[in-house]
Design a protein around this nucleic acid. Sequence first.
DNA 1: TGAACATTTCGATCCTGATCGAAACGTTGC
DNA 2: GCAACGTTTCGATCAGGATCGAAATGTTCA
Lengths: 229, 229
Amino acid sequence: MPTIARELADLAALIADPGRALILSRLMDGRAQTAGELALVAGVTPQTASWHLGRLVQHALLKVERRGPRRLYRLATPLVAQVLEGMMTVAVTGPQATRPPARIDAAMRQARTCYDHLAGELGVALADALREREYLVLDQEVGGLTEAGTAFLGSFGIDLRPSSRHRRVLCRPCLDWSERRPHLAGRAGAALAELAFQRDWIRRRPQGRSVEITDTGLDAFRSLFGVRI
Amino acid sequence: MPTIARELADLAALIADPGRALILSRLMDGRAQTAGELALVAGVTPQTASWHLGRLVQHALLKVERRGPRRLYRLATPLVAQVLEGMMTVAVTGPQATRPPARIDAAMRQARTCYDHLAGELGVALADALREREYLVLDQEVGGLTEAGTAFLGSFGIDLRPSSRHRRVLCRPCLDWSERRPHLAGRAGAALAELAFQRDWIRRRPQGRSVEITDTGLDAFRSLFGVRI
DNA sequence: TGAACATTTCGATCCTGATCGAAACGTTGC
DNA sequence: GCAACGTTTCGATCAGGATCGAAATGTTCA
């Protein structure tokens, strides 16, 4: 009989290869990439990357769709992203003494997407600012928008009124591995990130999932949200 | 510069060994075990287990305390347990077609502890029953007790009134890897599990973290909570 | 101090899995 | 149908880590 520990080990082995970890980390913004691009990300030849991608698809961490002669790979489910994010948190909160987290991925630490919402200093600062104005209640395990918060986000055209159409949770904390504090996830977090992209407050960097804060973005975050960055 | 992907891969490699996965899975009930016992669990010699345990402590997944000539190992933090539980969920929700989850760890699936609360069929059935009576609101991402629920648990001597002394969240969903639905975690879940042990509704099995439901327990869960198992 | 016991360290061996070159496959566009 | 391109399959090689025997360490108790 297969044991859960065995399943755990198999899954971990899948993530344990540096190339595959790079691929997974790259795909954690939820978008799709071609096999060739992912080979570059992983720093291996296309045939090696193909082997890795095959294993990741076989174990249902990734799903693949054919787009002409190319194949596009993306994370299979949001749950995968959530668990990987959790693993990253454990990875960097671990041996603090030996590995100063400050030296890890400077661009990623400043601002990045975490599947569909914002993370890093920016993500945590936004959550803090919303909390300070009492628009949001958020700790490490649960979160919720206040009525004032719903109205505030509504003023940006974000409709977060309770609805039976949406099965997805409005507001969820997501422990940030770089800041070690929760940022805003769930429908509210996703909508906020979408707004920021639409208004050009942030831009995706060409590679990786870190984002760049534009000058107008810095203004907006400070003046509209009261963010201190 | 170390990248987060590299940290992720290193952590995964740590969990990827079958012996270490068995050790971690065993320790997921939050209690401590000696090196010798863990060697038996992992199915390796004491010197091999010692090597594994050393690595797990070095990377801060475990912490160790000396008790006389023995050394007791336990999970370093609740976060570690939470992330491992998440990984298990991904591991079994993955290739559903190839690996029928029904065949995995029968005893564990029925009832087990998940760090400090109850999981498996029992854990999910308890959460369902509490939800049915409108004592509890719980979905995959957030949860909360109703006033009636707080009073109900209070009738068993469980004091869950909001208090500034307790930093820990009252009520949190924890996705159950075997049932694929949330069970009750947080302070409420821990208190409920403690109650069940104290009243001899459940007993820990000698090895592993699965628990046995006693006859009185079955009665109690059915008559007092309305659980259908 | 010495014996008993649990655990760790050292050293040598073995095996799984990552890698890439070469070649085959499949899709698109002419 | 053929050429071009992205991707995968096959095969051989190589390395890192898991394993255990032997011996050392450390702790308790008499």
